[in-house]
Simulated scan of single mutants.
Amino acid sequence: MTAGILKNPWRLLLAINVAVVIGVFIHKVRLPPYVPYIHLLVDYHFGFIKRALIGAIVALFTDKVPVWLVFAIAGAMWLATLGLYARLFQKTFGFTARTLPLFVFIAGSPFFLKNFMHTLGHFDIYGCAFALVLLLMPARSLLFVAAAAVFSAILVLIHHIHLLMYVPTIITIVVIRHYLTHGITRTNVAFGLVALLGVSVLFFAAQFLGTMPIPQADFLAYLKSRMADPSRENLLQFAYIWYQPLSKEISDTWSWLPHNSLGLPVFALLIWLHTPLWRYFADLVHALASDLHRHLVIAALIGISLAYLVMFAMVFDYSRWISNWAVCMFLVLHAVKMLPAARETPPIPAEDQKTNLFGLFVTLIPRVGIVRPF
């Protein structure tokens, strides 16, 4: 029996991943939710400002925001994302013994659900969830393009950095699922360009016109009035981010660059541990029936990666950016699988010793982190 588990350990690795997620959750709820909590307090009380949509929605239901609401909302979002991904995997690959290694490498990756658990309450997961919905919903009409535009606008209102973080992946999904699958016409191209322009304008409005219009002391007083427990003033220490200009964010990022760059070898190692998955992804792309599709997919992957490179130069939450980049790769993998293929792509081998070791290491790593590795 032991020899059988060592030869084909994927069910065991899946169970270990569940235990690791529970452990990460227990650890997370014991930490003060500095950034996630303040985002539930900020709304549109003083007019249009950046990073205020989630708080504005919360304000519709309650005047006082308890700290536990961070974990309630974020936990529900995490469970919804898990459910959406499980449904997508079932639709794309199906749950069988042959596809279990692929599921473990993606769903059990420290870049994905485990890191979303560690960053519980942060806004990254919303981009992933909306992308999953777009991968699941019908893509036959312009309603699909309109839905993608609405989702992108919502993401920009949640946090404008989504324009770089998940909007490029959403564009890739729209191109693959609608334009490449159902054809390109003058009407749907014009509609898509107008939608993209609208989202871009919203981004610039949030970035340059969405600053807080009142003194920081008055802003802090308002936030304190919305707290269920005003004595926990330490949770307001990041209020300055609604006043910090882009130039200051870039300056801070570059000043910390020598120190934060020390984590790059760790990120490279984590990416390398997913080698069986990247090899399978490359085989999927090479197996596409159309050269045009293949070239456009490669161009999209480069474009998504360049967007993350820009983020690296602007904001120093490197562990989050690397993790979300990997998640975007996972999402595009599913989209590519939906395109016509010239041949069947062999699955990740379930009984290869080297692959099993990669799977074990990926499973045992609990998460990547927020700024620096782990």
Rank of each mutant, 00 (worst) to 15 (best):
V150R: 04
H160R: 02
A149S: 12
H160P: 00
L143N: 15
L136G: 14
L163R: 01
S152E: 06
V133D: 00
L136W: 09
L143M: 10
L155W: 03
I161L: 15
A146R: 05
L164R: 08
H162I: 03
V133T: 04
H159I: 07
L142W: 12
F151N: 00
H159E: 12
L163I: 13
H159W: 09
F151M: 02
V156L: 05
L143P: 04
A149E: 06
L143T: 14
A153E: 02
L142Q: 15
S141L: 09
R140K: 10
L134C: 03
A148W: 03
H160E: 15
V133W: 02
F151P: 02
L135V: 00
A153W: 00
S141K: 10
L134A: 00
L136I: 13
R140I: 05
L134S: 02
A153P: 00
S152R: 05
L163T: 01
V145F: 01
M165E: 11
V133N: 00
H162P: 03
F144Q: 05
I158G: 04
H162W: 02
I158N: 03
S152D: 07
A139I: 07
L163C: 06
A153L: 08
L164Q: 09
L157S: 10
V145Q: 02
L155Y: 06
L142S: 15
L134Y: 02
L163M: 15
I154F: 05
V150Q: 04
S152G: 11
V145R: 06
I161H: 10
L142R: 15
M165F: 09
A149M: 14
A153N: 02
L155S: 06
L135R: 01
A153C: 10
A149T: 14
V145H: 04
L143Q: 06
A139N: 13
L136E: 10
V133K: 00
R140Q: 11
V133A: 07
F151A: 03
I158L: 14
V145D: 11
L164W: 13
S152H: 05
V150Y: 05
L142G: 15
L134F: 04
L164D: 08
H159M: 07
L143E: 15
A139G: 11
I158W: 02
F144Y: 15
H160Y: 06
L163S: 06
A148Q: 09
L143F: 11
H162Q: 12
L136P: 07
L143C: 13
